[in-house]
Design a protein around this nucleic acid. Structure first.
Lengths: 360, 360
DNA sequence: CTGAAAGCGCTTACAG
DNA sequence: CTGAAAGCGCTTACAG
């Protein structure tokens, strides 16, 4: 091959047996020798800035990943990326994923996670990535795809594209069953303390609530629907607002267990007895739901099972096995405990309509 | 070197530049060729059983660890081993450790964890290990030591030997301050729902309780000291036993927040108001403590900080930096919320001694 | 600053 | 079943 042939021979560049680019590929593309590429990779400083830049560009272009024996044999090493590590929620997911045949590195989603973040995981030798409740930035998704590192998303905030496998729960059905439970107990004035309005799973739960009411021939009173942030404080504040209404609801459906506990506290502070004067249904069925006083009626979301499923889907992808389904939703299930009870009959002398004013 | 020299030349065996044994070391020791050792390592089946056994023996003897680029450069990969992944407790520790400059693989301590378990972590390329609230089996400790993989223990169940670095909290001082808080509020009949009697940190907390009582000139009534298992159910059961005593305590000190929540529920079921009729102090200050109704007064154990410290100690050891201290205890701190209040004055017509019968 | 050369630790056909 | 030989992808002195 005559000198100068590098210009037009991109297809002829040396690659490893596996097809992945090697130091030789990069060296050829950047028009330098193999040791020079090695130096750039190892951060040695005896490389001219311009050479370094050229090599770096080639490394980026080819998505070079140093051989890591980990990626090829033994238990695959994957990253489990959570956006918040300050809730009992997280540990349920972690428990599920670590229960699979994967080695799981737990990390938090960094602020401006993008291409650079994805590449750092790739070059750290991760065989795959599970992203929980975070948006997967588009450039990160592309970087993973180019490097052949599969990604599975748990409980996506946005509807992921058809090429991103994801695991969720039947949030809509959960909202429906929670509300039906309260309706069956005789409640007619049922408030909602939901999660953020724009988050997918939260919307679905509230839509389930609406559906249950409409199915029962009741309208939705918009003043009874409030949005929080899934956290305790928001649950407390929004529940307080509902309890301070001129005609307060007799039951609340909360978007999470944590919010439900906030609602219990808002009731306790006002001397409103749960469940006698106020029924409360949560969502998640975290261990804390059993530890609440009174123990919380809630919609069980099988978080550990979702983690386990995401793990096994990822294991399949890592092993090159095709997925049966790109999107799986696991069933939620109502767990009745002590925070709900039959609604009291109309309290005499108290102005209360059995059916709230209908509204779309 | 004449053939047959392998017999007596153990010191002359080939090793890598770093001093670690290589395939050549093992091959020489086992009296086979290098490819044969490679085959054994990779589980190929074209090796005679007897040869395989001989090679395996040499691998064990020399503590052979395949080169893993991970162990030498980039962010160190460590294992965080928890004995239970079903409590909000775990996520606090995880949060702390993942906050350090380490990649953290989270796993559960397997049943009969020993030498084999340690070796599997070593050969999976872990640069270090953090063990949480589990006994580190002696043979595992030795295996890690031989492989040069450092270990740090968080909140050890046994007092670790002087050569095992560990991080804990000032449990004794925590038990003392919890009890002093209740004494200052005027409580004289204070019960304990502790963790398992034999677990170190639990013992220390109860000893702190004893010390506070004795310092106040009060004896310890053994019928008021009960042992649970740190879990909700145990807290409920043991608190129930104390509340059903002919003369029940006016306050309880629980060994964990989870137990304290069990105690709150035991009180609620009996119609005993917290804090008016029963003060409750927990231990840990997990997020759930803030979410309880009423919000829980508790002894804050800086779990995330403990995780962070263990992580940075491990990072030091991995980098070959000596540790300043082998054993560090971080300070606990009383957090007063709404589950404690001044003790009621002697209830008229109620037979109740202000000082319980003294007993060693 | 750069790269030819030697070398490291390991794996992979393949001959016997 | 075993191992000499070739080779892989990378790093490390070291000469210019």
């Amino acid at each position: 091959v005559p000198a100068g042939a590098t210009e037009d021979g991109e297809d002829a560049l040396a690659t490893s047996r596996t097809g992945r680019p090697t130091l030789a590929t990069i060296a050829e593309a950047a028009g330098v020798s193999l040791p020079t590429v090695s130096k750039v990779l190892n951060g040695k400083d005896d490389v001219a800035a311009s050479t370094r830049a050229r090599v770096q560009e080639a490394l980026d272009e080819f998505g070079y990943v140093p051989v890591s024996p980990r990626r090829d044999r033994g238990t695959p090493l994957v990253d489990l990326v959570l956006n918040a590590l300050d809730s009992p929620w997280a540990v349920e997911i972690i428990r599920g994923v670590t229960g699979t045949e994967l080695d799981v590195v737990v990390s938090a989603m960094p602020e401006g996670a993008g291409r650079g973040w994805a590449q750092s995981l790739v070059s750290a030798g991760r065989s795959g990535v599970i992203v929980v409740t975070s948006a997967l930035p588009d450039d990160a998704r592309q970087a993973f795809e180019r490097a052949g590192v599969p990604v599975v998303v748990i409980d996506p905030v946005d509807i992921p594209g058809p090429d991103v496998p994801s695991v969720g729960a039947t949030n809509w059905a959960g909202g429906l069953s929670a509300t039906q439970h309260l309706l069956e107990l005789g409640h007619r004035r049922i408030g909602v303390v939901g999660g953020p309005e724009r988050v997918l799973c939260s919307r679905a739960r509230i839509d389930g609530y609406r559906a249950a009411l409409e199915r029962a021939g009741l309208g939705v009173d918009p003043s009874l629907v409030r949005y929080g942030d899934f956290r305790h404080e928001g649950g407390y504040t929004e529940a307080a607002a509902l309890l301070d209404l001129p005609v307060r609801p007799t039951a609340l459906f909360a978007g999470s267990d944590e919010q439900a506990l906030g609602a219990i506290e808002a009731a306790r502070v006002r001397g409103i007895a749960v469940p006698e004067q106020l029924g409360i249904v949560g969502f998640d069925d975290l261990p804390v739901a059993r530890w609440a006083s009174p123990p919380l009626t809630t919609v069980r979301q099988p978080l550990a099972a979702m983690g386990r499923l995401a793990g096994s889907m990822l294991a399949d992808l890592v092993a090159g096995r095709p997925l049966d389904h790109q999107r799986v939703e696991l069933a939620t299930r109502l767990v009745v405990r002590a925070s709900t009870a039959p609604a009291r009959g109309q309290e005499p002398g108290r102005e209360q309509r059995s059916v709230p004013p209908a509204r779309g």
